[in-house]
């Protein structure tokens, strides 16, 4: 309870300090909004040319796209402290964090909360709403909750990846960009239904970086499509929980990293 109160104070101060540079803040937010639109233009071009991808039409792909980008926008906003973690170590801010009677995770999250990712979030939302209007989905309370759940689950999954990436930097800073490409590459890959990929790549997205659990399975359930790659059709209803499990798993790896840091001091 107390930690939540502290997090909201961090949140408030982050907004206040970012609003000190109002013009830059607004420009960046608009920039992010437009940039993601240009990315989306790439998807549109391909559907214009090919019509469909493995039976999925543009509007259906837009649903996948919206869910992934909204989830990732939230991640970028609240886990920025982990994303830039090597800098935190280099500047000694992480030592400062260790000197305070709070968990490292809470303090790193609070250290930097990026509001301008609202640009990507809004773009994802616009695409998602457009897709919902275009598609004839029979909405039920369950499906609505599942949609929200898959965005939240996706957020936790991406956040877990970012935490793992930060953890790795306790051992090697130089390989970071590679891990970073898994995160961004994951966003790219999950923009499309994973069934379009070759089986070996699908397996990666189901078992290793389980993006399918927060995107493909729930989105297929929402679309009312029953072909879930030989998985039970019930999986879509609870698979977003894997995102949260993945995040909890990352946090336990993180703790090992912190222990390593305090015992080597490097």
């Amino acid at each position: 309870m107390d930690s939540i109160k502290l997090y909201f104070k961090y949140f408030r101060f982050n907004i206040e300090s970012q609003l000190q540079y109002k013009t830059s803040f607004i420009m960046m937010s608009i920039g992010h909004f437009l940039i993601t639109f240009i990315e989306f233009l790439g998807v549109w071009v391909l559907f214009e040319r090919f019509g469909n991808i493995q039976g999925f039409i543009f509007e259906e792909a837009a649903l996948f796209y919206g869910i992934v980008h909204m989830a990732f926008a939230i991640t970028e906003g609240w886990t920025r402290g982990f994303d830039t973690f090597p800098k935190l170590v280099r500047l000694g801010d992480f030592d400062r964090i260790l000197l305070r009677p709070r968990t490292t995770v809470l303090q790193i999250l609070g250290h930097d909360i990026q509001m301008m990712r609202i640009g990507r979030f809004m773009q994802g939302l616009v695409v998602l709403i457009w897709a919902i209007f275009k598609l004839n989905i029979e909405w039920t309370l369950g499906k609505t909750l599942l949609l929200i759940g898959s965005i939240i689950g996706g957020n936790f999954l991406f956040s877990g990846l970012i935490v793992l990436q930060a953890t790795l930097s306790f051992w090697s800073v130089q390989s970071l960009e590679i891990v970073n490409s898994f995160t961004y590459g994951g966003v790219q890959a999950a923009q499309y239904p994973i069934s379009i990929y070759k089986p070996w790549f699908r397996k990666i997205l189901i078992y290793i970086i389980p993006l399918a659990t927060v995107n493909y399975f729930p989105a297929m359930t929402i679309l009312g499509k029953s072909d879930l790659l030989s998985f039970s059709k019930w999986i879509g209803w609870f698979s977003p929980l894997f995102g949260i499990l993945f995040f909890i798993f990352s946090l336990s790896i993180w703790r090992i990293g912190v222990k390593h840091y305090t015992s080597t001091g490097s």
Partner: peptide, 20 residues
């Protein structure tokens, strides 16, 4: 190194420390 919040008034950093 500083433990104060760079872009905010000093008092805000104190307020935060109070909660921390």
């Amino acid at each position: 190194r500083t433990q104060l919040w760079w872009d905010l008034p000093v008092i805000d950093s104190f307020e935060l420390l109070k909660d921390i």
